Simulated assay, not measured.
Amino acid sequence: MKTVVLLSTRRLPPTYFDTVREDLGNQELSLDVIAWMPPSGYVADRVHTFTLIGPGRMPKAPAPELESDPLAEADPVEEAPDAVIAPEAVAEPESVVGEAEVAPAAAALPADAAEDEAASTTPAGAAASSRGAGEARPVGITRVRKALGWRYRKARKVAGKVLPKAIKTSAPVKFLRGNRAGKDLGKTYWGRIDGRRDVLTTIEKADVVIALDAGAIWAGWNLGQRRGSVPVVLGLPAARRELDQLKATTKAAAGNG
């Protein structure tokens, strides 16, 4: 069984590792992943090891499916017949309170209760406006900071409108931004690998090391310079050629023996 180490700085789905095995010829492979970002799903059943050296957390294993309870699937209990309201429990028309009886009762309320009732009918907006009117405006250094923040946001918005959208979305600008971000990430990624003894030990045991994306190229180049005995390639097609050569060399050695 060949050991393959995958270097990646992107978020990989679990199904991607099935694609890797297929592109590498469906050989018996042990996949070890050194990743900057956690996968998008549970991958412990698809790879040998997955070492996360960047931010984030590994996804948890999916919860096992619980068997259905036969009692829960039974028909719900029907309502008892005696739960129906009896006719005699309904109030008679004479028991309904009329408007003539409500007015004297309201007049008999004490003054405090009447004030509470009037306060409860006051609109919420009026109360909020009365509270807002009492708030003091910022003064001193707080006022200066708020003014500077407002001017900064306004200047940024104006600059975004002045620069044509065709320039901001052009291919050269996107390339420069992506290239700068890729270089920064690549150096950080390589620094994490170089500082982890367990990661370097995993790489030393590999038959092939594959850099899967642009962020992993710098790490792959440095590993290739340090360990010439372990082939470090970019992409799956190049890794397929290396594995085929190793397979042919192994067969030739076995035939000569």
Results as ranks from 00 to 15, higher is better:
R46V: 06
A108V: 03
H48C: 08
L24H: 04
W190K: 03
P231I: 08
G186F: 01
D184Q: 13
V139M: 14
P93L: 13
R21P: 00
E135L: 15
G182L: 00
L212Y: 05
T250V: 05
R151Q: 12
K205S: 12
P81Q: 09
E117V: 13
G228C: 01
A254S: 11
L236V: 02
S8K: 03
A100F: 09
R57F: 09
N222T: 02
G257D: 13
P93G: 06
L148H: 10
P13D: 14
G98N: 08
N179Y: 07
R11A: 15
V162S: 00
F50C: 05
V96W: 13
A111H: 13
A136W: 02
L163Q: 04
Y16T: 10
V230E: 00
Q27N: 07
A44M: 06
S120G: 09
R151N: 11
W190N: 09
G132L: 14
F50K: 03
K183M: 08
V77P: 05
A86K: 15
A63R: 15
A63K: 15
K60V: 02
L31Y: 09
G149M: 10
R145T: 08
G195F: 00
I34S: 05
E92I: 01
L212H: 10
V90W: 11
V5H: 00
I193Y: 08
Y152N: 08
W218Y: 14
L66V: 12
A219T: 03
P59S: 12
V4F: 07
V208K: 03
A114C: 06
P39Q: 10
L185Q: 07
P14E: 05
R197G: 04
L163N: 01
L66G: 07
G149K: 14
V33F: 01
D112Q: 14
S229N: 11
P13W: 01
V144Q: 13
P14K: 11
F17M: 08
G140C: 07
T169M: 01
K165F: 01
A103I: 11
I167A: 11
A61V: 04
D116R: 14
A159V: 07
P231G: 06
L12S: 05
R241D: 14
